[in-house]
Design a protein around this nucleic acid. Structure first.
Lengths: 344, 344
DNA sequence: TTGTACGCGTTATCAA
DNA sequence: TTGATAACGCGTACAA
């Protein structure tokens, strides 16, 4: 213990205060110090007070590294983001980091935009013993899934804000069928009859996807399946090119009367393409709907009618899953709400 | 060691492969196994090969928790974001996570939007022994700084994409004076003579801030200091309200001919306010410039003339600082470039 | 309520 | 080049 004291005086900046130091100062054992820092521990209020005071004067805080190593629980979650072009990711990151933090979890942000580095990142996260790996707004692709499962220390694979049919993953998302039904009802009620669906990246398994739901519903209602376009990424610029390229040579009567978009990023690109690429008015010539209600679509430039997911409730649901207290079956049935603006 | 084997067979999913297991299989010592995983370690190629093969069949990866604890280096960086309304944060997060990952660092994303939770988050990060705390696009405020310094395990306090005069922090940013000079030159050259500066949140110490630079430069050039407005946050909606509220009752000859904005988020709000709030044309009636070159300002709706920072180079600079190989004095002099579009 | 072995999986350091 | 000892700081389980 003497050399410890030496270190403290000789190099104060790097000296690390441990529970032992606090214990000595407070006149208790090291384990009592640790108890004082645990919420539900059998310790007398007086002793705790004494310990906390000693801890305070020494500037002691429990070391999470050592705690994780010993307890095999890291209180760390890996958030995987592969698409930084969609502002909605920022909204979700804000919500997730805030809610997770509130419940004691820290967030490791992993950039999986580059597919070759994704597996390395996932490995690295697993080496930190994250309690869960969460993909945001997408599904695990097969390669990621294989890596994650190979990295056996990743306990839970969670898909946030997206439905997933893979039995090895847990999905926290809103009910896409109900959501698209709400949008479809609105589209029909407003009298639109020639819809085009603008879809995002297609996953192999999406029986319950937004596109499928809309097409099926419309087909049931009117006996014909609407056209659709597919964008490889949720990128406004991509949507612009797609819409512009598709309709620039088309005669007026062949145009849709509404473009139903899988999310707001696509919707913004669609609006831009209609206005600036094709010289059309929104919604007078062609209406547009989005999904997500990102802050940008409330700009007077866009005023896009869209659908807002209950992100806070969903984030709280994620916490329940991390805790293991969730009734998993209920976590993919969150209900959001239609936000009506001027674009449709 | 026997019970280990038992665990492996009885509960394979949770069994953790350690260096010991690999050592046994490869017929070497545990320390040799670890050496095989270090880049520059004195180990024969043959032994390493043997070890790696054994590791592969067992699915072994070094545990970063234990490694951090023992080595006192976490290879973890804490990224602090306080403003999720500005899309530029997403761009910076993408760049930082990618470059940091490339060099072996993982990123802890901490939401510091809520001021009361900021210190708790910083504490938590320090408890994970992050190698550095990085604030993005803002300066450390006094309260954060005090917390960070109190949390002695945070080795480095770094301000990214913002100049900082605090001697306890290291700033990685572009040269704001040079940047604003470039913008000012352009504004003058294009013949604008009645500028208004739209500034973001004001920090106490900003002698070299963008606003100050512009005002001083203009004053030197034309003998009078331009008007300016201050937004509390880099929020497009706030900028809208500010511009609209300021000019709605003003007569035409009292209007500026250009609004020079501290960043793109403000510029977008300004454009919206001019067009939709005041019925003016951009740039014919009033021009606008931004800063950051976020993807959104390239939309045909905005086409904002702006200034792009060399984010990749800056992120690499951050890595040098983490490594301790940086010549710190040079890291706040990155040069960006003017991106001319149609708004000015 | 409080104190005590022992283990978590590495790294640093020294010895062989 | 390789093996061995002693940390790193805390949690679990159990005993006092």
């Amino acid at each position: 213990m003497e050399d410890r004291t030496d270190k403290a005086s000789s190099d104060k900046a790097t000296y690390q205060v441990t529970a032992d130091d606090v214990a000595k100062l407070a006149g208790v054992s090291r384990w009592t110090v640790n108890r004082a820092f645990k919420k539900e521990a059998s310790i007398s209020a007086k002793t705790r007070e004494k310990v906390m005071q000693a801890a305070d004067t020494l500037g002691y805080l429990p070391d999470l590294l050592a705690a994780s190593l010993a307890s095999d629980r890291s209180n760390l979650v890996c958030l995987m983001v592969d698409d930084f072009a969609n502002p909605h990711k920022l909204v979700m990151l804000e919500r997730l980091t805030r809610i997770l933090r509130k419940h004691g979890w820290d967030s490791l942000l992993v950039n999986t935009a580059n597919d070759t580095e994704t597996s390395a990142a996932l490995m690295s996260a697993s080496q930190r013993r994250v309690d869960a790996a969460v993909v945001i707004g997408i599904q695990f692709n097969d390669s990621n899934l294989a890596t994650a499962q190979g990295a056996r220390r990743v306990r839970k694979l969670i898909v946030f804000a997206r439905s997933s049919e893979n039995p090895d993953t847990i999905s926290v998302c809103c009910d896409d069928v109900a959501a698209m039904d709400t949008i479809t009802d609105y589209v029909i009620e407003r009298g639109y009859r020639k819809p085009l669906f603008l879809a995002g990246p297609q996953t192999s398994s999406a029986h319950l996807g937004r596109k499928e739901t809309f097409l099926r519903r419309w087909s049931n209602e009117f006996g014909q399946t609407p056209d659709f376009l597919v964008a490889d990424r949720y990128d406004a610029r991509l949507a612009y090119d797609l819409i512009h390229g598709t309709f620039v040579d088309r005669s007026v009567q062949d145009l849709p009367d509404i473009i139903v978009c899988e999310n707001d990023a696509l919707a913004m690109g669609a609006v831009d393409a209609l206005r600036y690429g094709l010289g059309l008015r929104v919604p007078e010539d062609i209406a547009v709907t989005g999904f997500d209600d990102i802050p940008q679509v409330d700009s007077p430039n866009y005023k896009i009618t869209t659908y807002r997911q209950p992100l806070t409730a969903m984030a709280e649901g994620l916490v329940e899953i991390l805790r293991g207290t969730a009734d998993n079956s209920a976590l993919n049935h969150f209900r959001g709400q239609l936000v009506v603006r001027e674009s449709a």
